[in-house]
Amino acid sequence: MKNNIFSKQYDLFIGLDVSKGKADAAIYKRNRDRNVKSKFVRKAIKFKFTKPGVDEFLDTVRHYKDEDCLSVLFAMEVTGVYSDNVYMYIRDHLQESESVKFLDTKFVDRWRDAHGYAKSDPLDAKTIAQMCATDDDARYVEKAPNYNEENNKKGHANLKLLTHRYQQLNKQLNAEYNRLSAQCEKFFPELTAVFSIRSATALAILEAYPTAHHIIKSSKNEVFNVAYEASKHRCKEAKIDDLFDLCENTIVTRVFYSLSRAKFNFCSFFEHFFVKYFIF
C-alpha cells in the first residue's frame, strides 16, 4: 500500500543560538504523520553575520526543503544587539511558507526549569529547534524590533553621542594617568620600572603598597599574590623579584612616606571605574 500524501508532509524548525557576530544553527524535521519519526536533519551549522554568510545559511536550510515541506520556522532567543540584525536580515529575505520569530523569554525560562536546566545554562541551537518543534505551547514575541527611519536616526545620533562621550572620558583618563605617572616617578619610580602604570597589576600594587618602603616591609609572597590576582594569573614571580631588588636600593627618602600615601588615595578610583572600562 502506498503512503498517502499526508504521511509525506513535514515542517522544518531551525534553532538559532546567536552570539556576537555569529550563530550556530540546527534543523529539526517534524513529520505531520505521527507514525513517521521526527528527527534532526542537521545538528550543527555555523555562519557569520555577513551577507554571504547568512545567504549561504539560508541556502543550506532550503536544501532540506521540497514540495512536501509545509512551513519553515527560524527561532531564536532575544539577545539584544546580537540578534536584532540577523533577525531583520532573515525576515527581509523570507520565502513563501517561511517565518522567523523571537522566543518569549518567560516561556524559555519556564521551559528550562521544567526540563532541569540550570538558570545559567544557555539553550543551544539543537535545544531551541527541538523545543519549538515538540512543544505546541511554545510562545513567541510577536512584535519585531522597530527599525523605522525615525528610530534609526535616533540610534545613529545616540551612537555619535556615545562616541563623543567615550573620547572625552578617554582624554580625561589619559590626563589622570599622566598625573599618576608623574607622581610615581617622584615617590615610587621602582614600580614603573617593572610594570606599566596603565596595567591593572601596577594599580593594585600601588593601592596596597604605595611606596618602595611599603614593599620592602612586606613579604614577597603577599606582594606576588596581589599582582597575580590583578593580572589574572599572568604575573611571574621574577617580576616581583625585580621589584624588590629595586625597592631595596631606592633613593626615595622616608620623609615622603605619609605624603605619598595621600597622593595615591585615588588609585581605588581607577580600580572601580576607569579600569573597568578602559584597561585590558
Rank of each mutant, 00 (worst) to 15 (best):
G155M: 09
N174I: 11
A200Y: 00
P210L: 03
N174R: 09
L180W: 00
E207D: 09
Y177P: 04
N148C: 08
C184D: 04
L161E: 01
I215C: 05
L159G: 14
V194L: 08
V194D: 03
A175H: 06
P145Y: 00
N148V: 11
A204Q: 04
D137Q: 09
A193E: 14
N151C: 12
F188S: 01
E207Y: 02
K217C: 12
P210D: 01
H213W: 07
Q167P: 02
K171V: 02
Q167D: 00
H156R: 11
Y140V: 06
A200V: 14
I215K: 02
E150M: 07
N170L: 11
E190D: 12
A200Q: 10
F187Q: 01
A212K: 04
A144P: 10
I197Y: 00
E150Q: 07
I215M: 03
T163P: 13
T201P: 06
Q168G: 14
S181D: 12
D137F: 11
E185W: 10
I216A: 11
L173P: 06
L206C: 10
A193P: 12
S181T: 15
L203W: 00
A138G: 00
K153L: 02
N151K: 12
A138I: 02
R139H: 08
K153D: 12
N170A: 13
L180T: 12
T192I: 01
K186E: 04
Y147S: 08
K171H: 03
T163M: 12
S181M: 08
Y177D: 05
E190T: 15
L203N: 03
P210M: 01
T211C: 00
Y147A: 11
K160H: 06
T163L: 10
A204E: 04
E185F: 13
K160D: 05
Q168H: 14
A193G: 13
A138C: 07
C132H: 01
R198S: 01
K143N: 10
F187P: 00
A200D: 11
R139G: 05
K217I: 13
L161V: 07
T163N: 15
I216F: 09
K153H: 09
A182T: 11
D135V: 04
F188W: 04
E190L: 14
N178R: 08
A204C: 12
A208C: 09
R139F: 08
Q183K: 14
H164L: 15
R139D: 06
I215F: 01
A144D: 11
Q168T: 15
L191K: 05
R198P: 03
K217L: 12
K171I: 02
I205L: 01
K217S: 15
R179G: 13
S218N: 08
E207N: 11
E207L: 13
E207G: 10
N151H: 12
S181Y: 00
Y209E: 00
Y140H: 07
K171L: 05
S181A: 12
N151M: 14
T211F: 01
Y166C: 12
A204I: 10
K217Q: 15
K154I: 15
K217V: 14
